[in-house]
Computed example of a mutant assay.
Amino acid sequence: MRVVDKERGQVKFGQRRIVFEVRRSSRRRTVGLQVDAERVLVAAPYRVRLETLEAFVLSKAPWIVEKQNEFAEMGLPFRRKFETGEPLLYLGRQYTLERLPEEEGPTVRLWGGTFQVWANKASTARKLLEVWYKDRALERIPERVEFYSQQLGWAPQAVYIRDQRSRWGSCNLKGELRFNWRLMMAPSPLLDYVVAHEVCHLLIFDHSPAFWRLLGKIMPDYEERRRRLALTGHQYEL
């Protein structure tokens, strides 16, 4: 089937804006709808007006939102462009990115409900934000390690903040703890779960029943926190 035209449209459903792509064909006789992780696609005959397609998409909005939410639950990454208006998380709260032109130099500031980033390039904005999150992690995570270490009476040899894409935290046989800086995007209870988990590994290095019993003593609701982190962890990414 030869595609002869392509355009975009959008509708508002509650507080949500649904942007869709239109692909037209002179051979198509009906309107079709496809939703995947990247886009909403409407296939339509050439003669159907955009206003009609907008009404069609709006009529399907509950189903579209449901499918988009399902893809989000699967942990599919959000392709960030570091443009004004994009959402950013800090300790579970959502903020809005405001990218501003550099004045005296690139910098970042959390101001009210906004991440203000002075950077001419998206790549610079990303680097600035990563440094900002790492600095916050260096401030907060060692404090939480100390809190849970005092409950167990066993302190680590060192605490490091690292860029660990495949794990939230780790503990080695030397008693060194390493944590992913992206934890600063997660709500505090989920950050604390990772910290308590790794602190318990200082005493029990495996995931035996004894390990989970120990974790349960200092964090009785660890199972719920663990489940929530598994469901939402894909959101904590730049």
Rank of each mutant, 00 (worst) to 15 (best):
L238H: 04
P187Y: 10
I141G: 10
W212D: 06
S149P: 03
G153S: 06
I204G: 03
C200D: 07
A186R: 01
T232S: 11
L231I: 06
V40W: 07
L50E: 13
E38K: 15
V108S: 04
V145R: 03
Y46N: 11
T232Q: 13
K6Y: 13
P87Q: 01
Y46C: 12
R28Y: 01
N69R: 11
R109Q: 13
A72S: 10
Q15D: 15
P101Q: 02
L183R: 02
L58V: 04
A72F: 06
K81R: 14
K174V: 07
A137S: 12
D206Y: 06
G216F: 02
Y160H: 14
R213H: 10
W132T: 10
A210F: 04
R2Q: 13
V57F: 07
R165V: 10
G105E: 02
F82C: 03
R99N: 00
H201D: 10
E146A: 15
A122Y: 00
R8M: 11
R47K: 15
D5W: 11
M219H: 05
E70L: 10
N180D: 10
E7K: 14
T52A: 15
A122N: 02
P87N: 02
T30E: 08
T232I: 03
V48E: 13
P77K: 08
V108N: 01
L76N: 06
Q151L: 15
R29M: 12
E102I: 00
S123Y: 11
T114E: 12
Q68F: 03
A61P: 03
Q164I: 09
E7D: 15
Q94L: 07
V22I: 14
W181Y: 15
V19E: 14
Y236C: 04
S25V: 01
K127W: 09
Q68I: 12
G153W: 02
T84K: 00
H201Y: 05
V42Y: 02
E143Y: 09
G9R: 00
L152K: 03
G169M: 05
V11F: 04
H234R: 06
L110W: 02
C171I: 07
F205W: 08
